[in-house]
Amino acid sequence: MATVLVIAEQVKGQLKKATFHALGAGRDLAKRLGGAELHVLVAGANLGEAAKQLAEYAGTVHVVDGAAFEHAVAETNALAAVAAAKATSASHVVLAATTWGKDLAPRIAARLGAGIASDVLALVGEGTVHFKRAMWAGNAVATVEVTTPIKVVTVRPTEFAPAEKAAAAGAVQAFAADAGAAKTKFVSFAEVKSARPELADARVVIAGGRGTKGDFKPIEALADTLGGAVGASRAVCDAGWQPNDLQVGQTGKVVAPQLYVAAGISGAIQHLAGMKGSKVIVAINKDPEAPIFQVADYGLVADLFKALPELTDAAAKLK
């Protein structure tokens, strides 16, 4: 029996949302492989709650719980993942294509002698499963075959629905893994704190570009009225007007909310690659020729400093 092994991502014992999307992809993959078992590995410290939660989604949860795995770097996590892949005879190892997953997955692949399909958008076929992935900033979609016996896959969280709970809870097992002697040491983490939802998970994203001239107040007001997240174009982050982690685009975050409002964003190819998957796109720009209008469902040629407050007032009245 084939096994699909999902590697869970957690911070301080809290599972990341993307992990449930990876489990959704893992479940679909297991089904396409003709009923493979779904296992999940979680490594870290104080994982009691996380393990219990994961057991609601996977047949077996392997838990590496120890101080050596708190703040573990990719070198260390790769050792645990490879040991678990071998112990479960996994045919596929699946991670979410978050910065954590992207950092770790290739090291697992190299150690297993496996090929890696990264940032996968969709699974194709049954029995033998191929993978669709974006290339050239989303201007082309390739179908790729991983030819090695073991395959490592990172999946784009916005493209896979989160897993539903399994009929019965799975087993939780302690898994002993050697942490090795990493050449890399965690020093510190400077968290960007926000009262708004996380950009990658938000139902509504209001994004501002160069047209804001750095003044994000109207963007933030609309986001807060609609319970949404704030996003930004690359130009805005490069100028230091907004923190880097708000950047939407090929080189930033890929988002696919129900509603995406692009205000004062011209719509460079690399920005479009990060938001084209949104359900409804609204563009507000003074320049009627801005490329953003080509992907917008609703375009409004207007000054954002006038249009956004009006939109905010109208949205508040609808609540």
């Binding site: 911070v11 890399t184 040491k185 400077a190 996380e198």
Partner: peptide, 12 residues
């Protein structure tokens, strides 16, 4: 630059 903030690592 990682999800949620900036992490500092020391690499041999």
């Amino acid at each position: 630059e990682i999800d949620g903030g900036l992490e500092t690592l020391s690499v041999k």
